[in-house]
């Protein structure tokens, strides 16, 4: 828990809060980008280079841009007349609180079970690669299959629209 951690955590939380509270959808999307960047910095401060850079590459480079494109293509960039809170905010809050409490419970319970390592484990990209195609090859392949299916689905959706236009 260094000062660096607190600065990065504050940045990330501020980004997340701004994403929820800002009225302008594009501003919210940019705030999400800030939150993603903060997460990446947290990974980096834990010496997890690969995860940190992958976070930037995937989330800032692709997901944030995807969100922005979705906003622009759906005319969501118009400012909402009434507030940003929907009518069902109470239910949403309850679900969020439930998820948070489950996660917090799991994290707090797992603390004694974790081995207390004093030295920072030196994990190189090479080790991550070996683990991904060795021990964790099955989850990796399942993920790949899922993503391929999603890609094909997206292509089919796009093609259908083109046929309808003609």
């Amino acid at each position: 828990m260094t000062p660096v951690f607190y600065i990065i955590a504050a940045l990330t939380i501020a980004g997340g809060l701004a994403a929820v509270l800002l009225k302008n959808l594009v501003h919210a999307a940019l705030a999400v980008t800030v939150a993603f960047g903060g997460l990446a910095l947290l990974f980096l401060s834990l010496d997890a280079q690969f995860a940190g850079f992958a976070q930037i590459l995937v989330y800032i480079g692709a997901v944030a841009i995807l969100i922005v494109f979705a906003i622009l293509l759906t005319r969501g960039s118009d400012l909402p007349q009434d507030g940003v809170f929907s009518h069902t905010w109470l239910i949403g809050l309850m679900i969020a609180a439930g998820v948070f409490s489950v996660l917090a419970w799991a994290v707090l319970r797992s603390v004694p079970a974790l081995p207390h390592e004093t030295a920072v484990p030196a994990v190189t990209v090479h080790d991550i690669g070996v683990a991904l195609v060795g021990r964790y090859v099955l989850p990796l392949e399942i993920l790949a299959l899922l993503l391929t299916a999603a890609t094909i689905g997206a292509v089919i959706v796009a093609m259908h629209e083109k046929d309808g236009a003609q």
Binding site: A40, Q49, F50, F53, A54, I56, L57, I60, G61, A62, V125
Partner: peptide, 9 residues
Amino acid sequence: LFYFAMGAS
């Protein structure tokens, strides 16, 4: 990876 992460930003 760092280079490409910065390029994506």
